[in-house]
Design a protein around this nucleic acid. Structure first.
Length: 213
DNA sequence: TAGGCCATCTGGTCCT
DNA sequence: AGGACCAGATGGCCTA
């Protein structure tokens, strides 16, 4: 039984569309919302330029060495594309983001880590609460399990916590953000109101220090 | 214009 | 020998 998670963190919601769409949409035909994959292949433009300007890129030459290097470049490109595909897959299962927003690679990894941690804590708290309810009610008929959990983002002010949030900047992910979460151990009438404080949602911080109830 | 993010190239290292 | 992986270098694109 998994918690139902509806979560659009404010820090992410506040990303400006232009901030996350750095590439002309007219060029975006691949479905990549951010557009890196729609850039012109460096083998066509950048590769040529760099091979001329950069002494390190001298191996674009004929001969067996050049062919080997080209094959290696091709493999490396493919490898990185696979890596990016995996990152996209990870992004797709993270809490919903605005259509025009896309986490960077590092943000994706950090957010995923924090998200997994949050879910784990949610289950742990719900289980704990369920057991307490059972104990108090001595009602063996109600299962000590989590029916669902609903997440909502909330502005820091709404939650009543002090914050230095600066959501207007690109580094908004380092700002304080909070999400409220209601957990339903057995029935909705006994929902547990919980506020999760995602300080530095995507930062690599000590998660335990940002958990508030 | 500076800084962030990215894709790509490249050579080195390790493994099969 | 060849492939996978890695990190450094480079240049393009974008935003503040």
């Amino acid at each position: 039984m998994y918690p139902k998670v509806i979560c659009v963190p404010d820090a992410l919601r506040r990303f400006s569309p232009t901030l996350r769409n750095r590439v002309n949409e007219a060029d975006d035909t691949s479905g990549d919302s951010r557009g890196q994959l729609t850039r012109k292949p460096a083998t066509v433009t950048r590769g040529d330029v760099s091979s001329v300007k950069n002494p390190k890129h001298r191996c674009e030459q004929s001969g067996q060495r050049g062919r080997r290097r080209m094959k290696a470049n091709d493999r490396e490109r493919h490898r990185m594309h696979n890596l990016n595909s995996a990152l996209d897959a990870l992004r797709s299962i993270l809490p919903a983001l605005p259509e025009d927003a896309k986490l960077t690679k590092i943000e994706t990894l950090r957010f995923a880590r924090n998200y997994i941690w949050a879910l784990t804590e949610t289950l742990r708290m719900a289980d704990q609460h369920a057991h307490t309810q059972d104990y108090l009610a001595s009602d063996v008929s109600s299962p000590a399990s989590v029916l669902s959990a609903e997440w909502d983002s909330a502005s820091p002010s709404e939650c009543g916590y002090g914050t230095n949030a600066d959501f207007g900047h690109r580094n908004s992910l380092t700002a304080v953000n909070e999400m409220s979460c209601r957990i339903f151990p057995g029935n909705e009438s006994s929902a547990i109101p919980v506020t999760f404080c995602f300080k530095s949602l995507c930062a690599d911080n000590d998660l335990t220090s940002m958990w508030h109830f």
